Simulated scan of single mutants.
Amino acid sequence: MTRLFTSNLSHIILFIGISIMVIPVWMIFASSTHTSSFINTHGLQFFLGDSFQENYLRVLLYKGGFFKEITALKMFLNSFIMATGVAMLSVVTSLMAAYALVYYRTKYATFLFWLIFITILVPLELRIFPTYSVMAKLNLVNSYFGLIVPISASAIATLFFRQFYRTVPDELLESAKLDGASTWRFFIDFLVPLSRTMIVAMFIFMFVFGYNQYLWPLLVTSSEQYWTVVMGLKMMSGSIVHRFAFVIMSMVPPIVIIIILQKHFIKGVFQDK
């Protein structure tokens, strides 16, 4: 009886927590399907209206910004390119950095690792102006490379990959050497497949990190053609229902990426077991 009560109580608490997170988002979505005059008169709505297509198409295709040069569709594309680039480059560099730290027995490997790890303690705001100066000298301002490269190095991802590599038995490396595998072949054919679960997890984490960036894109882009979704949330104008629609659409790309890659993440976990 006690066990049943505890189980029901846990589900009730879980349902309350989910409701607290989901209901406000649902009300914003439902309100975005009504007309502006209706929302201004009656406030937030819980039920859907009949202006969904009109409101969302207008937000996607309407040219906004200071010079009326950018659409929400272009912002979504910019954010997706930036987030994907940050995630891919971060995973690749972290994989290779961790591999070098663990399998190349250099004298200063531990020192180099802690030097990388200490960068976690340095906020982006402290290094943002020197980074911008470098990007300006390289003529990477107002470019996708300028958006992606400076925030792609991840000390946290390097830490996770390093700790994982340290759990790989040394016998695996010895067997690979006996089979004639080179250093690069051991990395590609053995370590990368073993790391697939963590690669997916780090990709999801870094995608969301890149997608949510605001300060760096704001500084490195002076052209509206490189505005991201988060910048659009701050700078867009229009009626309240159009802002609601923009907010809802801005949540879709990271949710879709998480849903798609979560399947591979869970599959990898069960395969590893």
Rank of each mutant, 00 (worst) to 15 (best):
R127Y: 10
I128Y: 01
I128P: 03
P130Y: 06
P130G: 11
Y132K: 10
Y132F: 15
Y132C: 12
Y132S: 15
S133G: 13
V134D: 07
V134A: 09
M135N: 01
M135F: 00
M135T: 03
A136D: 15
K137A: 14
L138N: 10
L138P: 12
N139M: 07
N139Y: 11
N139F: 08
L140R: 07
L140F: 11
L140M: 11
V141L: 09
N142C: 08
N142F: 11
N142K: 03
S143G: 08
S143N: 11
Y144V: 06
F145C: 03
F145H: 05
F145P: 01
F145I: 13
G146C: 10
G146N: 14
G146A: 09
L147V: 12
I148S: 01
I148N: 01
P150C: 14
I151P: 07
S152G: 13
S152A: 11
A153T: 11
A153V: 14
S154V: 01
A155Q: 15
A155F: 09
A155I: 08
A155G: 14
I156F: 15
I156R: 09
A157Q: 04
L159W: 14
F160S: 15
F160Q: 10
F161D: 00
F161G: 00
F161T: 00
Q163Y: 14
Q163I: 09
R166T: 15
V168Q: 10
V168G: 12
V168D: 14
V168H: 07
P169V: 00
P169Q: 00
P169E: 01
D170N: 10
L172N: 07
L172H: 08
L172E: 08
L173F: 05
L173A: 11
E174P: 00
E174F: 08
E174W: 13
S175F: 13
A176N: 06
K177F: 14
D179A: 03
D179V: 02
D179Q: 06
G180W: 06
A181K: 13
T183R: 11
W184T: 14
W184V: 08
F186N: 14
F186M: 09
F186S: 11
F187V: 07
F187Y: 11
F187R: 03
I188D: 06
D189M: 13
D189K: 12
F190D: 12
F190N: 12
L191D: 01
L191E: 02
V192S: 01
V192Y: 10
P193L: 08
P193C: 07
P193V: 06
L194N: 13
S195W: 00
S195P: 02
R196L: 15
R196E: 01
R196V: 09
T197K: 12
T197S: 09
I199T: 05
I199A: 02
V200S: 06
V200Q: 02
V200N: 04
A201I: 04
A201G: 04
M202R: 00
F203D: 01
F205V: 03
F205L: 11
M206L: 04
M206H: 02
M206W: 02
F207T: 06
V208A: 06
V208M: 00
V208W: 03
F209G: 02
G210T: 03
Y211D: 08
N212P: 05
Y214H: 10
Y214T: 00
L215P: 12
